[in-house]
Write a protein that binds this DNA or RNA. Structure first.
Lengths: 155, 155
DNA sequence: GCTATATTATCAGAGCTCTGATATATAATC
DNA sequence: GATTATATATCAGAGCTCTGATAATATAGC
């Protein structure tokens, strides 16, 4: 095989001239892998970390509410919460007012796991912006939010 | 449930003040969903589109080379290429020089699928940058590449 | 040449994510 | 109150992604 023309990250289509959707995906995958590598010692995945974070901010959410907040389907949230329940990181009790729904909240174990992973995430995020000016960071943050919001209004 | 304080995209922690890793993930997921929705009519997934694109640029790659290029594990690439083979989008023949590896390339069907999805992706990417100045776009592209490259040198 | 190491492909298992379908409970309509 | 529509949870199946382990081939060192 002649691999001499295959580019490394930052070169060719993998550099700043590449497709923006590809660059976004490549960056997101890199961060995800860094975070999951850090979380591995606590046996928490990134989706689990996301849901734990949301449950800390908004205790008492149902699966459906969590799904909307996380932009996931209820089925996906069901899988993740099932694994968190197995780990004892969250509690799940039937609601009194609405007997369809289960109310979710952090356990003490879950709060401990979350705190440990939060510290790791903070360190990674700091590295992501270490070489970026405040003005550039503002540009980047605005763009990321606008991209996430596409399709919210148009639907 | 009292949901009055749950934020929408762009508000609270989901806005420009949120964690940068979360914003990146949120934006990437939104783009992924938009692309896959567009690709659905052609029965091509985003990972499949990515590998087809790479095989068009570099025909004759092996699974291992494809994995390095896509920043995926060989096992993951194996799953995706197996599905592309089932769809008849790629061909796979044993190499003469090195009998361990299988040489991959696009079929005519795969080239047609790729062209159709490329047009869809171009439209989505255009929308992503429609409201962004050239200067801001350059800032964003540089940052995305730098984030993807983290861990390449440090490992 | 022979042994040790590295590379490639693949099997097995876990978790995340989607679409589609189903059952139950609540809300709206008549 | 009965019917209809909506919301919630869940089952089933597909695809993507990882870690860990195994077998075959190729390369390096002796």
């Amino acid at each position: 095989m002649d691999n001499s023309e295959i580019p490394a990250i930052g070169e060719g289509k993998r550099g700043t001239d590449g497709h923006i959707a590809y660059l976004l995906r490549q960056a997101s995958a890199a961060v995800r892998q860094r975070l999951e590598q850090g979380f591995a010692a606590h046996h928490i995945t990134l989706p689990q970390f996301t849901l734990l974070t949301m449950l800390k901010s908004y205790p008492g959410l149902s699966g459906a509410e969590l799904a909307r907040l996380a932009m996931l389907t209820p089925q996906t949230v069901n899988v993740i919460t099932a694994n968190l329940l197995k780990r004892g990181a969250i509690a799940r009790v039937r609601s009194e007012e609405d007997k369809r729904i289960f109310v979710l909240s952090l356990t003490e174990q879950g709060a401990r796991d979350l705190a440990a992973c939060r510290a790791i995430a903070d360190r990674v995020e700091q590295q992501l912006l270490a070489a970026t000016s405040a003005a550039d960071e503002a540009v980047i943050r605005r763009w990321l939010v606008s991209v996430a919001a596409v399709g919210e209004s148009a639907e």
